[in-house]
C-alpha cells in the first residue's frame, strides 16, 4: 500500500496538468472553457476524471494513514492490515459519494 501511495502521488503529479489546462481554459474565454467542458463531459473525460477522483481521495486517505504512523500508532501487523483495508474502502466510498453528488447536480 505504500507503493500505492507513491503511484497515486505520481498520477496526481501528472494530473496537475489537467487542473492547469482547466484553469487556463477558464481564463482564456468562453470558447476555450466550453471545449474543456465538452472534453471533461465526454465518456473518456468522465472515465479519466473518475480515476482522478479515486486517485486523489486514495492519496488523501493514505496520507491520513501516514499521519497515524507519524504519531507513532498503527505499527502492529493487524493494525497495518486494517489500515490498508480501511484506506481502500474509505477512498472508494468517498469517490462514489463525490460522483453521486456530481451526477445528480
Amino acid at each position: 500500500m505504500s507503493i500505492a501511495h507513491r503511484a497515486t502521488g505520481v498520477a496526481l503529479y501528472g494530473g496537475t496538468l489537467l487542473i492547469a489546462l482547466w484553469l487556463i481554459a477558464a481564463a482564456s474565454g468562453p470558447a476555450a472553457y466550453e471545449t474543456a467542458q465538452a472534453v471533461a463531459g465526454s465518456l473518456l473525460g468522465r472515465l479519466v476524471l473518475f480515476g482522478y477522483t479515486f486517485v486523489l481521495l486514495h492519496h488523501m486517505v493514505g496520507g491520513v494513514r501516514h499521519f497515524v504512523w507519524d504519531l507513532g500508532h498503527g505499527y502492529s501487523p493487524q493494525a497495518r492490515m486494517n489500515l490498508a483495508k480501511y484506506s481502500v474502502v474509505v477512498s472508494g466510498g468517498l469517490t462514489l459519494l463525490v460522483w453521486i453528488v456530481a451526477l445528480t447536480r
Partner: peptide
C-alpha cells in the same frame, strides 16, 4: 500534506459547484 488535506476538500467542493455552469 496537512494543508492539502484541508484545501483539497475545498477544491473538490469548488469543482462540484461548477459542474454544468456556463463560463
Amino acid at each position: 500534506a496537512v494543508a492539502n488535506l484541508v484545501l483539497a476538500i475545498g477544491f473538490l467542493c469548488v469543482v462540484l459547484s461548477l459542474i454544468g455552469k456556463p463560463h
